[in-house]
Design a protein around this nucleic acid. Structure first.
Lengths: 396, 396
DNA sequence: ACTCCTTTGTCCTGTGAGTGGAAAAAGTAG
DNA sequence: CTACTTTTTCCACTCACAGGACAAAGGAGT
């Protein structure tokens, strides 16, 4: 099949495409109920969309008491590629136009190998998904990278954990390689968009999405739109000071949140505890694997290990204090906690909640849910697909 | 003169009104350059605005090399009332439709006397301005109050420093008393709007406006629009923890920024220093007045008093640390410092700058100006006028 | 099977917004 | 006084869109 290149010609068509994306197949009549257009106008726009092949007819809808309506849906052959590049692994997924995941691969990887090596791997993973018959080609791709991005151009700027990526024209290069439109964003922002599209944040206009992985970042959604800041570095909360005169951080300061709690810091703390024989559980795991990661701490905590639980609680407290400040400042309607460490689960969540509910004023916390992300590792790739579909489903 | 009641009939007219508000008198041709409408369409909309009496003809414009154009301006009889209710004083000002201040009164007052007493005073002040011939009536009023506001209804919610105001229908009541449309907002947001309209933030889309007065608050502007949060308490940074296990605060926590630095805290610290004879300058002032305020500290600092300078630096450092966190999170294009303590001037600013430039990553601070507000005590009332004019100059 | 009612889809015309060209009006520069 | 600009008005034409009329298709009751 030839790839779709058509774009909606006007705001009405864009609106309809998004309704079909978010609501699945729909009858013309149901669409009419949602868009406040005259029936004639709606019919014209739907016909034009049918001509572009972006949407197709899909049989008859159930009767609502009278004549049955014809169903409309997004072309089932449309395919989006969602790529979520983490510090130590990549997720690549294929979705249909309704952003349902059809196939998903995760592979370990090191961003520090640089964009060329990483994209070689990403393209191979995409090819593998294609080969398994899930897609004949891609109509668009969304890419998440673990660092700040100059959004309009899709170029990473001064990313601390990705030396060699600074200024690399990710959007341009991948658009060439994949032969389709590409959008690039910070991985945390994509997680926020994912949770907004298909997760816990579906109905909230203003929320924060804190991602605790190798580092710590925060997606900011204002009025349903991701806020990226003046230079694309908004949400970079890993280097907020959490402990006065605390541990030295790679950024040159002391006491950064990220230095005290993150996947990397947690692994270091666990190793230290194991070596000092504070925890038999952790020491055993260290002996078995030669190293420890956040996953080991999670497992130890699940097994009831006091040291591991303490580490998690301690980190949750630090994180919660920072989030409490952000809640006072931003007054969100929801806080989502996600990222690799969600395996730490409710111990972590409880610590964060305690600090936030204690440290912020009641007016801000009174009706504030603080929850774990619903989508886990798929949040990023769903958000990536959402990013590119938002781009493609907007007036040309 | 009968008061204006007309409102723009469509988005084009609203656009034109705002251009005339922000750019002053303008020729039709100049307007045409700015709005991307055909000449015919523009002529029609301008004619309709002339019919509503919102704008009037204003003689001939200078020639731009050919036929001279007819000037258009907002009706010079339009009057807005800007009211900025602080914790300890009220500002009331009259502006024309271009938001230029025609008259401005400041009076001491105590918000804790409650809305009825305060509005009695405000109405008296408005009447005084009217009596001095500056206005025959008001076409709209903007009100700022020192606490969170449920914006659409214009009702304060759970304001910590204004007991007795909770749930008082400010908008409704004042609209009755003044006989004109009224909008209500947090005083900090109004200061941000004031600096955006006529001060240092004219060209910046995303910025923070930190107001240090009796308390500490922060106006948040995203994409040119004030962000108010889910419950209207966004920007309430006074109760972010600045000092672990620090001083007890009225909110029940310890170490809140506001407990360590604000007009009130500064006055307390100065009294203490004076009583302990740490500073002859402050002690002298205490003896002379019986009490001390932030103004005394500013004067002592200006006279070179080391203790006063230390207090300011100490407070600036605390504030700067909190702002550094907000800068990392929000990545603004500008930070404005304003409020009563701007009298502390560059000592304060230097301390804040030091902390922010040290405590945030270069990508966020690289091109980040941190400046004092330009408008001083008029920022609030200009912002109030701007608030109501934005409301009135939008499609009905 | 038939009637009556509801819902859906199509067609068509009227209206009003808006564009763009032409020409008149009012200047400036030489 | 002439040639050239800019501003303003006027007018005809296009286009989007609403909304009514009507046909098509189905459900429910008799």
């Amino acid at each position: 099949m030839r790839r779709m290149t058509a774009r909606p010609a006007n705001a009405h068509q864009a609106r309809l495409l998004r309704l079909l994306r978010d609501g699945g197949p729909n009858s013309r009549a149901q669409l009419g109920d949602q868009v406040d257009l005259s029936r004639s106008k709606l019919a014209v726009e739907v016909d034009r969309l049918l001509e572009t092949d972006l949407v197709v007819a899909d049989g008859l809808a159930a009767s609502r008491g009278g004549r049955r309506s014809h169903n409309i849906r997004l072309n089932p052959h449309l395919r989006f590629l969602g790529v979520d590049i983490g510090a130590t692994s990549v997720d690549v997924a294929v979705t249909n136009a309704e952003l349902e995941i059809l196939g998903h691969i995760n592979q370990p990887m090191d961003v520090r190998e640089g964009p060329v090596a990483v994209f070689e791997q990403v393209l191979a993973m995409a090819a593998k998904l294609k080969a398994s018959g899930l897609a004949e080609g891609f109509d668009g791709a969304g890419i998440g990278v673990p660092g700040p991005v100059r959004f309009p151009e899709g170029i990473p700027v001064a990313p601390p954990i990705m030396p060699g990526w600074d200024g690399f024209p990710v959007r341009e290069a991948l658009s060439q390689d994949l032969g389709c439109p590409v959008m690039v964003d910070n991985d945390v922002n994509l997680m926020a968009m994912g949770e907004q599209h298909a997760g816990v944040a579906r109905t909230v206009a203003d929320f924060l999405c804190v991602k605790i992985g190798t580092g710590i970042g925060c997606g900011i959604v204002v009025g349903g739109e991701v806020y990226r800041g003046t230079t694309g570095s908004a949400g970079d909360i890993g280097h907020i000071q959490a402990v006065p005169d605390g541990r030295p951080c790679a950024c040159g300061n002391r006491g950064c949140l990220e230095a005290h709690f993150s996947g990397a810091a947690l692994a270091r703390d666990a190793m230290e505890a194991a070596e000092q024989r504070l925890s038999a559980e952790l020491a055993g795991r260290l002996e078995a694997n030669g190293t420890l990661s956040a996953v080991d701490v999670a497992a130890a905590a699940a097994a009831g290990d006091a040291t591991a639980l303490d580490l998690i609680r301690e980190g949750g407290n630090r994180t919660g204090q920072v989030i409490a400040g952000l809640v006072s400042f931003f007054n969100p309607g929801l806080v989502v906690i996600g990222g690799g460490v969600t395996g730490l689960g409710h111990t972590l969540l409880a610590a964060i909640r305690t600090q936030v509910y204690r440290g912020s004023l009641p007016l801000a916390t009174g009706n504030l849910p603080i929850v774990l992300g619903e989508l886990g590792p798929t949040a990023g790739v769903i958000g990536a697909a959402r990013l590119i579909s938002d781009h493609l489903f907007s007036p040309a």
